[in-house]
């Protein structure tokens, strides 16, 4: 239909996300060809942070809510996997329940725990807006951070090493390649599901409220409830990302959930482009790779990195997603929500 031109749901809108997944899917082949398994490690990190950035952008780009507690939620997801694995390895029950290293159990557990936390954080912080929302989410991030530091039993400040072999049902997931494809499947699913949600009635209400609250209230929508649910959805997805980080690197530590990490997630999101579901995945990829490359060149890499980010964000109003859009021959991505 002609009237769906601005944001369609056809292949054109999905193409960038599909392309991202296919390109990422090829990286293990490159690693094998070059005989450099380190590439898979980096690619896994890219995928994990891509999931986190896509999750964050669900509230930033579509909900108008710049959250600074997402690294905290991300870390909690990681700790759920780590703690369950610790209890599995030490054969010590956790509140009468046995631990587990099976991701079929621990990833859903992380999703539920982080979803509940996000509901609490959201219910409180969404009563405010603007700078107050930033401050409260930041405060929650610090609570999660110091909460993790206080977990002496699980390594405290030093972090928590996963000693057991992580599995997925019958499959051993310590295989790097296998784990990479598991993470990639989650990224594909996150982009697909959030892409649907963004176009649904829920998504329309959420997006409209982020652009003009007065207008949506005037037609009978109470933005608060939709924002809260969006925040929980975002939390669940970022919790899964954190779970994958911990499982993939067999380690989780408070460093992964510092407030600066929350800022990094916002940078990835904006760098990639907040106008589309998939844009932040590009931002995460650029961020992770640049961090790696620049930090190997110079210890002042953050300076160079900052300059690059400024150039990209100023040069491309829609972030890296604009490059993708140019490649696909479109005017811009402000209205694209693929």
């Amino acid at each position: 239909m002609a009237d769906r031109a601005p944001i369609g749901s056809g292949w054109r809108e999905r193409a960038p996300a599909v392309l991202i997944v296919f390109l990422l899917a090829a990286t293990p082949l490159v690693a094998r060809a070059l005989g450099d398994p380190f590439i898979v490690k980096v690619a896994t990190r890219v995928v994990v942070f891509a999931i986190a950035a896509v999750a964050l952008n669900f509230v930033v780009g579509f909900g108008g809510l710049v959250s600074l507690c997402h690294a905290g939620l991300f870390g909690v997801g990681g700790y759920v996997v780590g703690v369950l694995a610790w209890h599995d390895f030490n054969a010590e029950p956790l509140l009468f329940l046995p631990g587990t290293s099976n991701l079929l159990v621990s990833i859903p557990a992380a999703a539920v725990v982080v979803g509940l936390l996000a509901a609490i954080v959201g219910a409180i912080s969404l009563r405010t807006s603007g700078p107050y929302f930033l401050m409260i989410t930041l405060a929650f991030n610090q609570m999660f951070y110091y909460g993790a530091v206080a977990l002496q039993k699980y390594g405290g400040e030093d972090g928590l090493q996963i000693m057991s072999n992580v599995t997925l049902g019958p499959f051993d997931m310590s295989d790097r390649y296998r784990f990479f494809y598991l993470a990639l499947a989650f990224l594909a699913a996150a982009m697909f599901v959030l892409g649907r949600v963004v176009r649904s009635r829920f998504g329309m209400a959420l997006r409209a409220a982020s652009r003009n609250e007065t207008r949506v209230i005037a037609v009978g929508v109470d933005p608060w409830r939709y924002r809260l649910v969006a925040f929980v959805i975002s939390g669940v997805v970022v919790g899964i990302a954190g779970a994958l980080l911990a499982a993939g690197q067999q380690f989780i530590s408070p460093v992964d959930m510092g407030w600066d990490r929350s800022g990094d997630l916002v940078v990835m999101t904006v760098l990639g482009g907040i106008g589309s579901v998939w844009g932040p995945a590009l931002g995460a990829a650029a961020f992770v790779v640049l961090e790696l490359v620049l930090s190997s060149w110079t210890s002042h890499w953050q300076l160079a990195f900052g300059l690059l980010v400024i150039l990209i964000v100023v040069g491309l109003r829609g972030g890296l997603a604009d490059l993708g859009a140019l490649a696909f021959g479109r005017r811009g991505t402000e209205t694209a929500h693929g």
Partner: peptide
């Protein structure tokens, strides 16, 4: 979209997550 949002708002809650609203 604007008119559809108004219709959506008067036809009950918007906790419908899957079907595209456009179309």
């Amino acid at each position: 979209d604007h008119a559809a949002l108004a219709v959506q708002a008067r036809s009950g809650h918007s906790f419908r997550f899957w079907r595209p609203a456009r179309g």
